[in-house]
Every structure is written in C-alpha cells, then in structure tokens.
Design a protein around this nucleic acid. Structure first.
Lengths: 168, 168
DNA sequence: CTTGGAATGTCAACAAGGCTGACATAAATT
DNA sequence: AATTTATGTCAGCCTTGTTGACATTCCAAG
C-alpha cells in the first residue's frame, strides 16, 4: 500500500489494511461461536441441533411459511431440511398443513410446544446480544448491523430485508 | 418493557428492543453465511472443508504453535483436529515437528504449499470484508468490531486479544 | 531411581447434518 | 393428456463433531 501525498486520505483508509481486515475476520469467527453457544447448550439437552434451531426460528418468524420458502432461506437441500422437520413434527413442535389455495404446498406453524422452545432459545440468544448491545451503545450497534448487511450475499440480503420489515 | 418517565432515556434504549435484537440475530446468521461462502467454494475444489481452513488460518497466524494451543483456540476435541491435521500433513501443507524442550508436543508450521492455500483463502475472505468495510466506513467498522468482541465468550476474547496484539 | 500420574497425541468407532441421485405422489399448468 | 411444480422418501456418501482406548513422554513424590 503506497503512501499518498494527501495525508488525510491515507489516514481514512487505515481501517482497510490487511491487518484490520484480518482482525475483522477473527472477530467474526470468535463472535459467532459465542452467538451460538447458549442455544447450543439448550438444544443438546433436548436432543436437537443447530439445524432444528434454525428451522424453529424461521417458522416462528414466518408462520404458515412453505417448505420451499424455508429451503431458500436456510440454503440447504430439501432432504436435509426434511430430516429435521420430520423429527420436529413427530415431536409435536411443528404442525404441517396442506395448503388451501395450492394443495401441493405444506404450511408450517409452531405448536404451543414449539413456541415454548423457540422462546427459550431466542431468550438465551437475545440475552447475550442485549448485553453486547448495551455494553457498546447504539452507534456501535448501528455500525455492526451495517457491516453485517454489507457482508451478505445479495439473495440472503433480500431475505434479511423482508424479515426486517415484517418485524415490530 | 415499561416506559420510563424520562423520554430521552427510553429513546436511547430503543436499540435494545426485542425486535432490534432479533434483527441483530438474523443479521449475524445471514452475514456468517456470506463470510464463509467464498473460502468454502475454494475449499470444495480442493477436497477440504471449513475445518481445514480454520486450522490453516491459525497455524499461519501462530507459526510453531502446538496442537494443544490450537485446540483451545478452535474449541474442538483433539481427535477432531487430529483428523484434519493428518490430511494437511499428508498433503504437504503442514509440517509437524516434535518439540525440542518437550518431546510430547508437536510444533506446527505451514509449508510453502500451505502458505499458498492460506493466502488464496484469506485473500478471498478479505476481499469481501474489504468491500463491506469500504462500503460502510470506519465508524461502522469500529462499531462492528466492538459488538463482536462483546459477544464473545471470555476465553475466546482472550485468544482474540492475543492475536490482535501479534498483528501488524 | 523408580514409579505413578498428568500431558500430549494417535487410532477406532459412532452421530449429526450436510450432500447427490433416484423415485413417488399429488396438484397445477399448458 | 402431458408436463411441470411442490413435496416427501429412501439409500448412500462426506465432513466434522463426539467418546473411548491406548501409547508416549514428562515430572514429581516417594
């Protein structure tokens, strides 16, 4: 990286050095572990895994969603998702209903039991997130979200944006 | 969440609502997928997985590190790491040397071939991170790092801090 | 000095959860 | 009627986590 004649400009770009980027990469790695640690512990007790958490989370977020929609959000194969969904349905956490308009579709909803698990998991995850947000403040949080959104693949950003709107 | 009598205070806490926290959770989920997407593609071609990437990354960062140290950074069992290390050693990407002081230890280093792979992977990952950083600016990046660091488990934060120092 | 325990690393076997491929069924579309 | 779409299922593979058993090495207590 050559030094420009304009000092200010090169100052402003210091956050883009390879070393700063590496720190960002390592921060992402370690933070994601923390991010999943609490739900993982809860899931382990109940004999579920991270895949079940993801399914439960997004069914909660989009009640009545179809299998296909869930597939495109989760980015896995239907066989993989189906294995997870089957156990959740068998265990009475998820309800699958044949579509009324299009009877090929299955509409997925959480049962009361499913909502309970979802609440337990997301409370744990929110607790950690809340602590981190409170500790760093609103401006840091705004930056956090901006960078994360910029880091997504464009199709994931679409899903994220759609879910963002449909919130509180 | 009860409304306080002090309007300003409740304004400042708007970023801590459950809805804001949920957005943070979903941002983390989608962004992490983007974060790993590019290296994953490269690894697939070469018959490696994410676990190989992690090992190569941290050996590059801490040349001569021991298996034990790597274990505590990666947070997996030694058996799991060993499988990955074995293939990397067989393929001539990693060199394992018996410790001189303590002959139980193995000191790990990347070979020239290993450094090449590491460079390819981290260039890809840095490209995406750089684009996100450039797009959002230094203040957002500062917030991003602060929140991530606050979200780590304390032992991971120690590893992160140690690696942070040893950088550029 | 010896001996027992702690630390380190290897091998074997198992489970979760990705993947592909092939195939069945029912409903919608052409 | 033929094709496409949405979903589910079976079988089999791979990666990467796990535990258990075991060998080697070091160190410290007797």
């Amino acid at each position: 990286m050559a030094e420009t004649s304009e000092g200010t400009r090169s100052q402003n770009l210091l956050f883009l050095t390879d070393d700063q980027l590496r720190k960002g990469i390592e921060a992402m790695f370690f933070a994601y572990r923390g991010f999943t640690a609490d739900p993982d512990r809860i899931l382990l007790d109940k004999g579920y895994g991270r895949a079940h958490h993801r399914a439960v989370h997004f069914i909660h977020r989009s009640p009545g969603t179809t299998v296909n929609n869930l597939l495109s959000i989760l980015g896995v194969t239907k066989q993989s998702l189906n294995r997870v969904l089957r156990t959740l349905i068998e265990d009475g956490l998820v309800q699958s209903e044949i579509g009324t308009r299009d009877k090929r579709e299955r509409h997925l909803n959480l049962t009361e039991l499913g909502e309970e698990l979802e609440a337990e998991l997301s409370n744990a995850q929110r607790d950690r997130m809340r602590a981190a947000f409170r500790q760093t403040g609103p401006e840091a949080v705004a930056g956090f979200k901006q960078v994360l959104e910029a880091m997504m693949d464009s199709d994931m950003r679409k899903h994220y944006a759609r879910l963002k709107e449909s919130g509180g």
